[in-house]
């Protein structure tokens, strides 16, 4: 499928760092697109600034609108309301969508236009040098929190649900098949859909938190993926109790 997906949907290879979690998302996303038969000629990808925003633009062979930092959801609102026949998909990072652009995210969730928003959450600002973001776990090290992040992070699932998003999901890149299934469900959903994609940044996050998180072995990204798998659990298993403090993954529909 690698070759098929490349030739059908992409323009060029990505410039992402080796092992980038965003690349794994891109892979899962194109698997989902292919399985779903999404018409790229009727699809607009809107993205802002940051590594996550580079997943669709300039890589996808579709209309792409690469906009100012944090405003992708607001631009997408204009695109979709002006032409409701278009599939409008926003892909960006946690800095872009949940930090500088948090206001647009919650209002889009409230407005409930059928936009699809994928937040590639790598817990910091990767492109600008590893600064703390609104999703950096408390205590973790970034280039602007050398002693550990003193602030609490957003739980993006709770944030989007609280804002009224009728479909919210969280999947890790370390479980690409679940991720792909979630992407298919999000893209097939007829209302606003938000996904907190647990991504990974080996370059900025991994190195800084290597000692703290215990990332070991010759392939740090593999160690990070293994670690991520251990920190998440399906929400169904955690709904009653969660003594180990695992991050729930899965899908939350408005009715549930």
């Amino acid at each position: 499928m690698g070759r098929v997906l490349r030739e059908k949907y992409t323009r060029q290879p990505t410039p992402f760092c080796p092992g980038c979690g965003h690349g794994i998302f891109l892979n899962a996303f194109l698997h989902a697109v292919d399985e779903l038969g999404l018409d790229f000629d009727k699809t607009v990808f809107v993205s802002g600034i940051g590594c996550g925003a580079w997943v669709p633009s300039p890589h996808f062979q579709a209309d792409t609108l690469h906009v100012t930092h944090g405003r992708a959801v607001a631009f997408a609102t204009g695109v979709k309301t002006a032409n409701p026949d278009l599939n409008v998909i926003v892909i960006g990072g946690d800095g872009d969508i949940a930090t500088i652009g948090g206001n647009h995210l919650i209002h889009a969730a409230r407005r409930n236009l059928p936009l699809k928003v994928f937040c590639l959450n790598n817990f910091l600002y990767g492109m600008t040098g590893g600064q703390v973001s609104a999703t950096t776990p408390q205590g973790d090290i970034t280039s602007t929190t050398r002693q550990g992040n003193p602030e609490r992070p957003f739980d993006l699932v709770d944030l989007a649900r609280g804002a009224g998003a009728p479909y919210v999901a969280r999947f890790p890149v370390s479980q690409p098949r679940k991720l792909k299934r979630g992407i298919i469900n999000a893209l097939s959903f007829d209302q606003f859909a938000f996904m907190d994609v647990l991504s990974l940044c080996p370059t900025q996050y991994g190195r800084a938190n290597r000692a703290k998180r215990g990332y070991e072995g010759p392939s740090m990204i593999w160690s990070m993926l293994e670690h991520q798998k251990g920190t998440v659990a399906p929400r169904e298993k955690l709904d009653s109790e969660n003594p180990e403090g695992k991050i729930p993954i899965g899908e939350w529909y408005a009715e549930s």
Binding site: V46, L65, V67, T68, R71, A74, F75, A76, T77, G78, V79, K80, T81, A82, N83, L86, N103, H104, H107
Partner: peptide, 22 residues
């Protein structure tokens, strides 16, 4: 189409998006 946005940043953004939608 009329949309009241959450701020002027978003308003300008939406207008640009709509312009590219034709």
């Amino acid at each position: 189409v009329f949309v009241q946005m959450e701020d002027e940043i978003a308003s300008m953004a939406a207008v640009i998006g709509a312009s590219w939608s034709g």
